[in-house]
Design a protein around this nucleic acid. Structure first.
Lengths: 147, 147
DNA sequence: GGAAAGACTTGACTGGTTCAAGAAAAGGCG
DNA sequence: CGCCTTTTCTTGAACCAGTCAAGTCTTTCC
C-alpha cells in the first residue's frame, strides 16, 4: 500500500489529501498497534513540523471514516492499526502491554449471539485475549517495562 | 451479601477489615458498573470522611485480590463490579456508555481457543459487545449524555 | 486565480489517575 | 487490656493523555 493508494483511500472517505494525513497513514502502516505518542514521533521523522493536535485530529478523522481502527485495551492508551476489513481480534500481554493480531477460531463473527442482551441492539463483538507474550512468559521479571 | 459476608471476603483475601473497605464493597454492590467518581460519592453518603485516594487504593486492593472486577471499555473510565466468579461479559452502549452483563451463548469460556496466538500464553478471553441500549436505540438523540 | 470549506498550529486547560509523606487504626501478642 | 508492628488512610501535589478554542494556512472546486 503506497501513497497513491492512501490518497485514494482518503478521497473515497471524502477527506482531503494532506501531508500530515499521508504521514500518519504511513506511520500506522509502519508501526501497527502503536500509541499516539509513538505515531507522533514517527510522523515527525518525515514531517517535523506536524503538531501534536494534528495527529490527534487526523487519527480521529481516520477512525471515524473507518480507514483506521482504534483499539484501547484496559489500562492502555489508545492504539491504532490500518483497518483491513477482516474480523480479527487482539492478544495483549499483561506484563509489557504489547499487542498482536489474532483470528478467532470460531467463525467470522464470533460470539455475536449473546444469550440475553437486555434489549441492546448489538453491532459488534470485540474479543480481547489476555496473557503473556513469548518474551514475558519466559523471563520471570518480564521482558520490557509496560508502555 | 451483608457486611458479615464482606468481612469474611476481606479476611479470606488477607485484607484488613476497615470502614472504608466495607463502604466501597457496599457501594459496588449497590451500583454495579459504576466508575470511581460515582463510587466515591456513594461511599461518602455513609462515610463522609473517606478520601478520594482511599477509594482508589481500596478498589486497587480489591481488584488485585479478585474480590472485585475492574472493567474499562474503550473510551470509558474504569468501572467496577462484584466478582461473582462466573464467566460473563459486557454490552456497552455507544451513545450513553451504560454497561450491562451478558452471558455468552457459546459456552463457559467462549472463544478462548484462538487460531494462532503468536506464542502468547493466554489466560483470559474478554468479550465486549458494542451497540445501543434500549433507551438510546429508540431516542434519536440518545437517552442521556455519556458519563 | 479566487472564494469557501476544511485542516493545521499554537497554547492553554481538563480530569482521571498516581505519587509521596506522614497520621491513624487494625490485628497479633503478652 | 494495652503495646507494637504493619497496613491503611489522609492530605496535598503532580502527571499526562486527551480536549478545547482561536486564528492561520491549504486544499479543492469553479
Amino acid at each position: 500500500m503506497d501513497d497513491v493508494e492512501f490518497e485514494h483511500l482518503l478521497r473515497s472517505a471524502e477527506l482531503r489529501v494532506t501531508r500530515p494525513r499521508l504521514a500518519v497513514l504511513r506511520a500506522v502502516r509502519r508501526q501497527p498497534h502503536a500509541d499516539t505518542g509513538s505515531l507522533l514521533a514517527a510522523v515527525r521523522t518525515e514531517e517535523p513540523t506536524v503538531s501534536h493536535q494534528a495527529v490527534y485530529d487526523v487519527l480521529g478523522a481516520l477512525t471515524d471514516s473507518g480507514l483506521v481502527r482504534r483499539i484501547q485495551p484496559a489500562g492502555s492508551v489508545a492504539r491504532y492499526e490500518l483497518r483491513v476489513g477482516d474480523n480479527h481480534h487482539h492478544v495483549v500481554c499483561r506484563t509489557c502491554g504489547v499487542v498482536a493480531d489474532v483470528d478467532c477460531a470460531i467463525g467470522v463473527r464470533p460470539c455475536l449471539d449473546a444469550s440475553d442482551t437486555h434489549g441492546f441492539v448489538i453491532d459488534e463483538a470485540e474479543v480481547t485475549y489476555w496473557g503473556l507474550c513469548p518474551a514475558c512468559s519466559t523471563s520471570p521479571t518480564g521482558a520490557t517495562a509496560a508502555p
